[in-house]
Design a binder for these strands. Sequence first.
RNA 1: GCCCCCGUAGCUCAGUGGAUAGAGCAAAGGAUUCCUAAUCCUUGUGCCGCAAGUUCGAUUCUUGCCGGGGGCACCA
Length: 557
Amino acid sequence: MKANLSLLVGQAVEAAFAAGHLRSAGLPPIELETPKIATHGDFSTNIAMNLAASQKRSPREIARIIIDHIVDSDHLLSKTEVAGPGFINFFIAWDKWYKVLKRVHDEGNAYGTSQIGIGNRVQVEFVSANPTGPLHVGHGRCAAVGETLAAILKAAGYEVEKEYYVNDSGRQIRTLGESVFVRYRQHIGKTLDMPADGYQGSYIKDLARILFDQEGKSLLDMPEEEAITLCAKFAAGNILAEIQEDLMAFGVSFDNWFSEQSLYDSGAVDSVIKVCQNQKFIYEQGGALWFRTTDFGDEKDRVVVRTNGLTTYFASDIAYHKDKFERNFDRIIDIWGADHHGYVRRVSASIQALGCNGDRFQVLLVQLVNLLREGKPVTMSTRAGEFVTLRELIGEVGRDAARFLFLLRHYESSLDFDLELAKKQSNENPVYYVQYVHARICNILRKAAERGYKDIDSNADYLELLNLPEEIQLIKLMARYPEVVATSARMMEPHRIPFYMKELAAAFHAYYHDRNKHKVVSDDAKLSAARLYLVSAIRIIIRNGLDIMGVSAPESM
RNA sequence: GCCCCCGUAGCUCAGUGGAUAGAGCAAAGGAUUCCUAAUCCUUGUGCCGCAAGUUCGAUUCUUGCCGGGGGCACCA
């Protein structure tokens, strides 16, 4: 619809150029928007205003000329007008909207997909939480954003690979090992204290107990280093398995789990450090090796190898991102918690230093989640071991509510998540509002089947009976869905999907509610067929949208 | 001090440089013999934080300031 109109406008401008009615110039991109106000038409373009400078005429005059050159052989338009400072407003002929319904049904699950990313490989890396403790609600938000962004990009035609980077090496893992070893010895009856930087959570005790059940007291006979390494491996492996379970329960999956340790095992970290040293991006000072990130806009250089000989996480991150680029993605998207923002500049510095195209790399910083209960903040502190885990969250409010509410805000805004609100079955909770549309339509289709209506969701006859303004309104809204998905992909903004879903849901509920005026299943078989075709198209879009968000579409509620 | 995010209705937030800035909640009133009331309808609300700049046009882009949140390490 929009594409056709865009074509008409382009042809009209070219025709005006050819006829000499407009001074020949480059054709600016044709922007068609859906005006906020219905009286401004179904679509509107500002092309005359954009041409004004090069034409040296008033936008309204140019708009008039463009309209005069429009050749609408298919009678797509019922009215075209010049408005305001020079907008051209287009009114689509009513009967043309029925094609949208047909398209929704024909495309089914594929309605909303597009080709804008075709031929492009994108990697999305997200969550990547250290296997030193359970996932908390902040990770949940990153998981929802990452998984949904990946789904949106796929719908837009991109080839998407989802990756989780496992920090299974380094200082934190060692601390984890030490913490478990302390609890292990305590479990046996030794009195000793947890070091200040140890992990305090009760899950450490659980791991120590399981370890004891498996290994008995044998760890006491080993050299301490060996015992700690064993504890670390055991704990990280167990925690990672739990993380994987949580993510699966949350409907989040990955194509690739990339181990940090593997970068050390393969020598990739050492080799990238050597390369950078040769190219003078890494220098030695005070016994440590520093990366010259200031050459690329960082405020200070960063340590890669400490005086004690240990590498920092930055060292393996350099090797990791080099590896990503070697895998030939057209775009590499990292989704990090906002608390890592200080890291962005140094990683992109290392990417540029290695000669990779930094334009292909992008970091999305997901802001924090403030967990509330009836408006009051729930305090969380990983250190002290007091936090609400993703598992607890899903257990309390359910996967659907959690996914939906995590996506409802722009990821760049911090999010207030109220546990009580998430459980409410009322107007305040948008999750059920949208799901209820699906359940209601399913029920209508069941009722129709009981009445003996055949082919209830595939009968495209009698569509011209859908002539009420609210019915056309619904169809117009449905026509916008593919554009919403495409825009979400282009802007990398998942929140646009739930916002659209709410809008479509509101329009449907209003339509549904006025049963006297437009009951779907009635004695009028033709009208019923047309309306069933309408509502089942809505169902398709609701289902597709919820599917992208990872939220279920219940048949009854 | 430096960096990132936010500042839009009483609250929570949408708003891809365009026309008269929108939703939900909250407040008040109403709707159910009906395809599920987890629903709908009606009623009000705005120095779009402030000030300059760019532009034919700025809530949107730039800069500065003010306010809120977060981050700064040979931690991650």
